[in-house]
Structure formats: structure tokens, C-alpha cells
Amino acid sequence: MKLTEEEKQIAVETSRKVSELFDPGKGNLIPILQRVQGELGYVPPEAMEVVAGYLDLPPVEVYGVVTFYNQFRTTPPGKHQVKVCMGTACHVKGGHIILDSWERRLGIKVGETTEDREYSLERVACVGCCTLAPVTLYDEEVIPKITPTKVDGLLFSHQLADKQQKEGNAGEK
């Protein structure tokens, strides 16, 4: 996925601003990266270079940290983020079947973002909602006891809501 020049510029500016909120100590590397991701939704290489410069680290060290941890993503997420829980309890209650359903419905593989950047699909290790297994996080909302049919319904209703919102906005203009 290629970033536009504008996106790169925003990334640079945002990470500069975020960095300056912290002392330039190496112990702040992860908090800074988390904040950058909080603002941008991802940490592109352009942002890593700014942070590395601020903390006086070789950029490859920042790259090593970003690529090590699950939390960080280097490409823009979709407008809606779907995270399928793959914890033990979800697994034995068919978590892999749910992941398959999302992949099939969105037409992407786990870790990818749809062409139109509407959806991104991820797996999470465990969100600690084991008693409601299997669960999926849809934009941070925990969807309990999900089934393949519920996946279809959820997607349909959200798409409908989005569509209505767009039409509503267009109508207002």
C-alpha cells in the first residue's frame, strides 16, 4: 500500500509533535510510538525516522521495535477495524471459523486492509472476554458469541449505516 505525499507529510508532522511531548530518553520510545499510532492509526517509516532522530537512535532500532510488537502496524488501517480473538476459549468455540468468515466476506486475508481502505482485519491473541467466546472486536466494541451468520449481519448493518450516513451528509449539502 503506497502512501500519498500528503499522508507522509502528516506522519512526519504528527510524530514530531508527539515526540516533543516526551523527554528524549530511550525509555520513551514505546510510549511515543504508541501515541503516534494513536494519532495516525499506524506508524509508517517516515514517522519512525522522526522518532529515531528525536531520541538519537539509529532508525533500524526503531524499526526493530515496531516490527517486534503486535500492537504496531506500518500501513494505514481501514476505516473500520475488525479484530478476531484467537484466544484459547475462542479457538475451541470456533474462532478460526469466525476468522475464515471475515476473510471470506471482506475478501482479504488477516493482516490486510481492503482496497478501498474501509476495513482492516487482524487477529488478537486474547481480549480476556473468554466467557463470551467466540468474540470479535469491531472498532473496539466487543461482539460476543459471534457466528458466521452474525458476521454477515453485522457487516450488512454497518454498511447500511455508513451508506445512510453518507447519503445524509450528501443531502445536507
Binding site: 517509516p45 519512525m48 525516522e49 539509529p58 532508525p59 533500524v60 532500532e61 526503531v62 524499526y63 526493530g64 516490527t67 517486534f68
Partner: peptide, 23 residues
């Protein structure tokens, strides 16, 4: 890191861990 230009590092983890450069 100690004697060169500091461009080599480890990236990713598990079986995918490798020695590489920035991006």
C-alpha cells in the same frame, strides 16, 4: 553498532526474525 555505521539491526520476531536495515 559499536564500530560501524549502526545500520544493521534485528527486525520482526520468531521464525521471521532477521538481520536487516531500516525498512
Amino acid at each position: 553498532k559499536t564500530r560501524g555505521a549502526g545500520i544493521l539491526g534485528f527486525a520482526r520476531r520468531g521464525f521471521d526474525r532477521m538481520v536487516t536495515t531500516f525498512r
